[in-house]
Amino acid sequence: MEEITEGLNNINIAETQKKNRIQVSNTKKPLFFYVNLAKRYMQQHNDVELSGLGMAISTVVSVAEILKNNGFAVEKKIMTSTVEIKDDSRGWPVQKAKIGVVLGKTANFDELMAVAQEARENGNGEE
Protein backbone atom coordinates (compact mmCIF):
# COMPACT_ATOMS: atom_id res chain seq x y z
CA MET A 1 0.00 0.00 0.00
CA GLU A 2 2.87 2.39 0.77
CA GLU A 3 4.23 1.92 -2.75
CA ILE A 4 0.90 2.95 -4.28
CA THR A 5 0.68 6.06 -2.10
CA GLU A 6 4.26 6.98 -2.93
CA GLY A 7 3.55 6.49 -6.63
CA LEU A 8 0.48 8.74 -6.44
CA ASN A 9 2.48 11.44 -4.65
CA ASN A 10 5.12 11.31 -7.38
CA ILE A 11 2.44 11.65 -10.07
CA ASN A 12 0.94 14.67 -8.31
CA ILE A 13 4.36 16.35 -8.12
CA ALA A 14 4.95 15.75 -11.83
CA GLU A 15 1.51 17.16 -12.73
CA THR A 16 2.00 20.36 -10.73
CA GLN A 17 5.35 20.97 -12.40
CA LYS A 18 3.75 20.76 -15.87
CA LYS A 19 0.76 23.02 -15.23
CA ASN A 20 2.67 26.04 -16.49
CA ARG A 21 4.25 24.36 -19.55
CA ILE A 22 3.13 25.17 -23.08
CA GLN A 23 4.14 22.70 -25.76
CA VAL A 24 4.57 24.81 -28.88
CA SER A 25 3.94 23.55 -32.42
CA ASN A 26 4.96 25.43 -35.53
CA THR A 27 1.92 24.23 -37.49
CA LYS A 28 -1.09 23.87 -35.20
CA LYS A 29 -1.69 27.39 -33.86
CA PRO A 30 -0.77 30.94 -34.90
CA LEU A 31 2.18 32.64 -33.18
CA PHE A 32 0.06 35.09 -31.16
CA PHE A 33 -2.08 32.26 -29.79
CA TYR A 34 1.04 31.16 -27.89
CA VAL A 35 1.94 34.75 -26.91
CA ASN A 36 -1.51 35.31 -25.37
CA LEU A 37 -1.58 31.86 -23.77
CA ALA A 38 1.81 32.50 -22.16
CA LYS A 39 0.51 35.79 -20.72
CA ARG A 40 -2.47 33.98 -19.18
CA TYR A 41 -0.18 31.29 -17.72
CA MET A 42 2.07 33.98 -16.22
CA GLN A 43 -0.98 35.64 -14.63
CA GLN A 44 -1.84 32.33 -12.93
CA HIS A 45 1.58 30.88 -12.14
CA ASN A 46 4.02 33.88 -12.27
CA ASP A 47 6.15 32.00 -14.79
CA VAL A 48 5.73 29.81 -17.85
CA GLU A 49 7.82 27.21 -19.66
CA LEU A 50 7.67 27.19 -23.44
CA SER A 51 8.74 23.87 -24.92
CA GLY A 52 9.28 22.89 -28.56
CA LEU A 53 10.79 20.17 -30.74
CA GLY A 54 12.56 20.44 -34.09
CA MET A 55 11.02 23.04 -36.39
CA ALA A 56 8.92 24.47 -33.51
CA ILE A 57 12.09 25.78 -31.82
CA SER A 58 11.97 28.99 -33.88
CA THR A 59 8.35 29.52 -32.79
CA VAL A 60 9.34 29.10 -29.11
CA VAL A 61 12.13 31.65 -29.55
CA SER A 62 9.82 34.09 -31.37
CA VAL A 63 7.15 33.87 -28.64
CA ALA A 64 9.76 34.40 -25.91
CA GLU A 65 11.30 37.38 -27.71
CA ILE A 66 7.90 39.02 -28.31
CA LEU A 67 7.06 38.72 -24.60
CA LYS A 68 10.50 40.03 -23.55
CA ASN A 69 10.58 42.91 -26.05
CA ASN A 70 7.11 44.09 -25.03
CA GLY A 71 8.08 44.14 -21.35
CA PHE A 72 5.90 41.24 -20.19
CA ALA A 73 8.58 38.65 -19.41
CA VAL A 74 12.15 38.13 -18.30
CA GLU A 75 14.15 35.09 -19.28
CA LYS A 76 14.86 32.79 -16.33
CA LYS A 77 16.28 29.66 -17.92
CA ILE A 78 16.98 28.09 -21.31
CA MET A 79 17.36 24.32 -21.66
CA THR A 80 18.41 22.51 -24.83
CA SER A 81 18.64 18.81 -25.49
CA THR A 82 18.02 16.12 -28.06
CA VAL A 83 15.30 13.53 -27.77
CA GLU A 84 14.87 10.27 -29.59
CA ILE A 85 11.54 9.90 -31.36
CA LYS A 86 10.44 6.86 -33.36
CA ASP A 87 9.86 7.80 -36.99
CA ASP A 88 6.59 6.08 -37.98
CA SER A 89 7.32 6.12 -41.71
CA ARG A 90 10.77 4.51 -41.43
CA GLY A 91 10.34 2.64 -38.16
CA TRP A 92 13.65 3.67 -36.57
CA PRO A 93 14.48 6.31 -33.96
CA VAL A 94 15.31 9.87 -35.04
CA GLN A 95 17.15 12.49 -32.96
CA LYS A 96 15.24 15.78 -32.60
CA ALA A 97 16.42 19.00 -31.03
CA LYS A 98 14.38 20.24 -28.06
CA ILE A 99 14.26 23.63 -26.34
CA GLY A 100 12.67 24.77 -23.11
CA VAL A 101 12.50 28.45 -22.19
CA VAL A 102 11.31 29.51 -18.74
CA LEU A 103 9.97 33.06 -18.57
CA GLY A 104 8.94 35.00 -15.48
CA LYS A 105 6.74 38.04 -15.05
CA THR A 106 8.36 41.47 -15.11
CA ALA A 107 7.78 43.91 -12.24
CA ASN A 108 5.24 45.85 -14.33
CA PHE A 109 3.53 42.80 -15.90
CA ASP A 110 0.19 43.36 -14.13
CA GLU A 111 0.19 47.03 -15.09
CA LEU A 112 0.85 46.21 -18.76
CA MET A 113 -1.93 43.60 -18.74
CA ALA A 114 -4.36 46.13 -17.23
CA VAL A 115 -3.48 48.70 -19.92
CA ALA A 116 -3.93 46.09 -22.67
CA GLN A 117 -7.30 45.03 -21.20
CA GLU A 118 -8.47 48.65 -21.02
CA ALA A 119 -7.40 49.26 -24.63
CA ARG A 120 -9.31 46.15 -25.74
CA GLU A 121 -12.45 47.27 -23.93
CA ASN A 122 -12.28 50.80 -25.33
CA GLY A 123 -11.49 49.52 -28.81
CA ASN A 124 -14.60 47.35 -28.77
CA GLY A 125 -16.83 50.31 -27.98
CA GLU A 126 -17.46 49.12 -24.43
CA GLU A 127 -16.94 51.38 -21.44
Rank of each mutant, 00 (worst) to 15 (best):
E118L: 14
M42H: 09
A38L: 02
S25T: 15
D47R: 15
K98L: 04
I11Q: 08
E111G: 05
M1F: 02
R120L: 13
K39F: 04
L103V: 11
G104L: 09
K28E: 12
E49Q: 09
A73K: 12
V60F: 00
Q43I: 09
Q117D: 14
V24C: 02
Q17P: 02
Y34Q: 07
I99P: 00
N124C: 12
E3W: 09
L112R: 15
G104F: 07
T82A: 08
M113V: 15
V74R: 14
S89I: 03
V48S: 07
Y34V: 06
K86Y: 00
G52W: 02
V101N: 05
E127A: 14
S25I: 12
A38Q: 01
A107Q: 07
A64H: 08
S51L: 10
E111T: 11
N124S: 14
T16L: 06
G71P: 13
G91V: 05
S62G: 03
M79P: 02
N122I: 11
L53Y: 06
A56C: 06
H45G: 03
E127Y: 08
K105H: 00
R90W: 00
E3C: 08
E127Q: 12
I57K: 05
T80M: 11
Q117R: 12
G104E: 14
Q17H: 06
G52Q: 02
V94W: 06
N108E: 12
K28W: 03
A14L: 10
N46I: 01
N124R: 15
V102R: 14
P30S: 09
K19Q: 09
P30T: 10
A56V: 06
K18L: 07
N46C: 04
L112A: 06
K19M: 10
E127M: 08
N36E: 14
K105I: 11
H45V: 01
V48D: 08
E3H: 12
V101C: 07
Q43L: 12
N70R: 15
S89R: 01
R90F: 01
E121V: 12
G125Q: 09
R90A: 02
V35M: 08
V61G: 00
N122C: 03
I78T: 13
K68C: 05
T16E: 14
N70M: 09
V63F: 03
E84T: 05
V94L: 11
T106Y: 03
E126M: 11
N70C: 00
F32K: 13
V61A: 04
G123Y: 04
S89K: 01
V63W: 01
Y41D: 00
M113H: 08
R120Q: 10
V101R: 07
Y34W: 07
F33V: 02
S81L: 00
M42P: 08
N46A: 03
R40Q: 12
A56N: 04
K39V: 07
E118K: 15
D87L: 06
